[in-house]
């Protein structure tokens, strides 16, 4: 097996190299998905184009409400990002359960999104934050909502010569908090059997508003739970409200049976985690504000 390894120094070179090889080349960043898949399937690309030496895509920018993640930002960076401590905690919670330490040190957020695994743990919270991804290719630059970027399992709208450069999102305007939970058989090195992220805001009159829920690993791609979101708008947290939320989440799941879990267990967990994410997020709003007043 021969594998051409290319190390462009500029974005333009990277795009040109990819363009010249048609679909035969793959971009590589952390390589924690690409290499494993190639090893497993034996389907190695003819060339890999290393993005790591291109400057400018490795930073987390912004002080809120607008933020951007360079596509080469590692999960470790997100996990340790102090700007995400607090209301955006779900970003850190998502990042810190991906793989193990060694994986998170090299695996990038851009890679996690472009790999488009239905179980990719960064996707649900970024869906909740209405993230948009920037792509640069031979046809120029474009910005695509993350919800439209991922089309299905391992399938995105990215052209083979397009590099993801940035993921941008804005924090909600009102008092809010966020939560990420995942189910799996162990506490690290675990592919989610269900992942659930939520962002919940509080209206001035103490009701839930602008609720956003997204679920991973329970269908061909991570999705927003729009029915549950609509239902929760303007509601006050109660046992009944949570029950209904859980039922709506379970109904939105279209999971598969596999060696990790049965479809019915995934559906069950979808309901449980949806409830918990909403409840936790709501409780966190007041905790965050209590902390602020205490400080």
């Amino acid at each position: 097996m021969k594998l051409e390894f290319l190390a462009p120094q500029t974005l333009q070179d990277a795009v040109t190299m990819a363009k010249a090889r048609g679909g035969a080349a793959r971009f590589i960043a952390g390589g924690t998905d690409l290499i494993i898949q190639a090893r497993k399937s034996g389907a190695w690309p003819e060339a890999v184009i290393n993005l790591q030496q291109i400057p400018g895509f490795g930073e987390i920018k912004g002080t809120g409400p607008n933020f951007s993640l360079g596509s080469l930002v590692t999960h470790r960076q997100i996990e340790r990002e102090i700007r995400f401590a607090g209301a955006l905690e779900a970003l850190r919670e998502s990042a810190c359960v991906i793989g193990g330490h060694q994986v998170r040190n090299v695996a990038t957020v851009g890679g996690n999104l472009c790999n488009a695994s239905p179980a990719a743990d960064m996707v649900p919270i970024l869906l909740c934050l209405n993230a948009e991804v920037a792509l640069a290719g031979s046809e120029g630059r474009r910005v695509v909502p993350l919800a439209n970027f991922i089309e299905g399992p391992r399938k995105t709208v990215r052209a083979s010569d397009e590099v993801m450069t940035e993921i941008a999102f804005a924090a909600p305007a009102q008092k809010f908090s966020s939560t990420f939970l995942k189910g799996g058989r162990r506490r690290a090195m675990e592919i989610s059997i269900v992942a659930m992220a939520g962002v919940v805001s509080a209206s001035p009159d103490g009701k839930m508003t602008d609720v956003r829920l997204a679920m991973g690993a329970a269908g061909p791609k991570a999705i927003r739970l729009t029915e549950a979101e609509k239902f929760l708008e303007g509601k006050v947290l109660s046992k009944d409200v949570l029950e209904e939320t859980g039922m709506l989440a379970a109904a939105a799941a279209s999971p598969i049976d596999d060696v990790r879990a049965s479809a019915s267990f995934r559906r069950h967990l979808a309901g449980v985690y949806a409830r918990r994410v909403v409840e936790l997020s709501w409780n966190r709003i007041s905790e965050l504000n209590d902390d602020r007043s205490a400080a």
Partner: peptide, 23 residues
Amino acid sequence: IVYENGIVRNPGLTDYKMPTAMD
């Protein structure tokens, strides 16, 4: 180790779940 018709369905350490240090 999970079998289906004699074929191992989880022939790698991704889905053969040994406890990690976290567990």
